[in-house]
């Protein structure tokens, strides 16, 4: 659960059935879900709206999933990105991580596993944000103390 209410998740997969099933599963868990059946649409939606996390299929009709990953990562580095791959290989995994993926899962993925990773990644994201907020607060506090001492 996102601290700031519902977390937003973008799912890009060319299989309409998968999109439908996964959307239902994620919505049941309380996420706000948008779906796209190709990379171009996914990219457009990601630009219009804020998403905490994206689940990307590695094989898409209009471009390689890794390419989409790279593009989204460049524009939205703070977004968590989970790659779903058809065939597991070290090369693929390394490449995906280098391109900015936060997790790498093999299709068919167990929904429980997927949900676990999604929650984990959202938590990581939340913690990172909190850390930043705390640090900013700390900095402000110290700054105030300094100013007060100068008075």
């Amino acid at each position: 659960m996102s601290i700031r209410g519902k977390s937003r998740i973008l799912v890009v997969d060319d299989d309409a059935d998968i999109l439908q099933s996964l959307k239902e599963i994620l919505e049941t868990r309380g996420y706000d879900v948008d779906v796209a059946e190709n990379a171009q649409k996914g990219l457009e939606i990601a630009r219009k709206k804020f998403f905490n996390l994206a689940i990307l299929d590695i094989k898409l009709p209009d471009m390689e999933g890794t390419e989409l990953l790279a593009k989204i990562h460049k524009e939205k580095p703070e977004m968590m990105k989970i790659m779903l791959t058809g065939y597991p290989s070290l090369d693929n995994a390394v490449q995906a991580l280098n391109l900015g993926a936060d997790a790498y899962l093999m299709k068919p993925v167990n929904p429980e596993e997927l949900l676990r990773v999604v929650e984990e990644k959202l938590k990581e994201q939340f913690e990172a944000e909190t850390m930043t907020e705390e640090k900013v607060a700390e900095w402000i506090e110290k700054r105030i103390q300094k100013l007060e001492q100068q008075k």
Binding site: D15, I18, S21, E24, T28, Y87, K107, P108, V109
Partner: peptide
């Protein structure tokens, strides 16, 4: 292998639902 992967994924999701 690849073709079976997506239906399997759907079945998995559906069985979870």
């Amino acid at each position: 292998g690849h073709d079976l992967r997506n239906p399997l994924q759907v079945i998995l999701y559906e069985s979870f639902v």
